[in-house]
């Protein structure tokens, strides 16, 4: 079995099993843990809209800090958008999702994907440098942050190398790309990458709870 056969076969299968089981484990555990009955009388009815409202308001920079966090905020957005474009609209990726989900969608030309992937890498490296040099950010960062960032940069960089055939033969580069994605899948449920699954539920939860208590947020 070659490296590529392993990466396309058992490697992919087991990393996906760990990813799916891990995400549902943490999501199920987290959601059910908070399901304690609140006996107080609600100050405000309509927790659903309160929750949704906070999902929206927390998606914009807070007024009080707007000036100081603008770079952080918008570079974060740019990074995520660039990441999603290169992951979701590269044709071979779509064929992968199609084999998994049973349906596909139209892709974008490779040139655009290559550009967005390069932009994504550049932004993430800039954010990584900032995280390592900014005194406050450095203080609140732990190994999890750095591992998570590296595990997300790796698939992007190996993907670009595979696309451009730089450094080794294409089958080897493709195998390394797949393995880097698989490493990310395995880490995903257990590290800070899990924010992808938890951000919106936790904002909703916070909004619903504020609403119930009559806090304006």
């Amino acid at each position: 079995m070659t490296l590529l056969d392993f990466a396309r076969g058992p490697g992919l299968q087991w990393s996906l099993i760990i990813l799916i089981a891990g995400v549902l484990w943490r999501l199920g555990g987290t959601i059910l843990l908070n399901a304690r009955k609140d006996l107080s009388r609600p100050r405000h009815k309509g927790t659903l809209t309160d929750g949704l409202k906070v999902i929206a308001t927390r998606s914009l920079p807070a007024h009080q800090f707007e000036k100081r966090i603008r770079f952080q905020h918008f570079s974060g957005y740019a990074w995520h958008i660039a990441l999603f474009i290169s992951v979701l609209f590269f044709a071979p990726h779509i064929f992968f999702f199609e084999s998994l989900l049973g349906f596909g969608w139209p892709g974008l030309p490779n040139g655009i994907i290559l550009a967005t992937a390069a932009i994504a890498v550049a932004i993430l490296i800039a954010l990584l440098i900032r995280r390592a040099s900014h005194p406050v950010q450095r203080l609140i960062s732990n190994a999890d942050d750095y591992i998570s960032i590296l595990l997300v940069i790796a698939p992007l960089v190996t993907g670009i190398l595979a696309f451009a055939h730089v450094g080794a033969r294409y089958p080897t580069l493709l195998a390394v790309h797949l393995l880097s994605v698989e490493a990310m899948f395995v880490w995903f449920p257990f590290g800070k990458l899990m924010h992808a699954a938890l951000t919106f539920p936790s904002r909703f939860q916070a909004g619903a709870s504020y609403g119930r208590k009559g806090v304006r947020a």
Partner: peptide, 8 residues
């Protein structure tokens, strides 16, 4: 089967 689709 496309190359990018897994082998499982």
């Amino acid at each position: 089967r496309p190359i990018s689709a897994g082998l499982w």
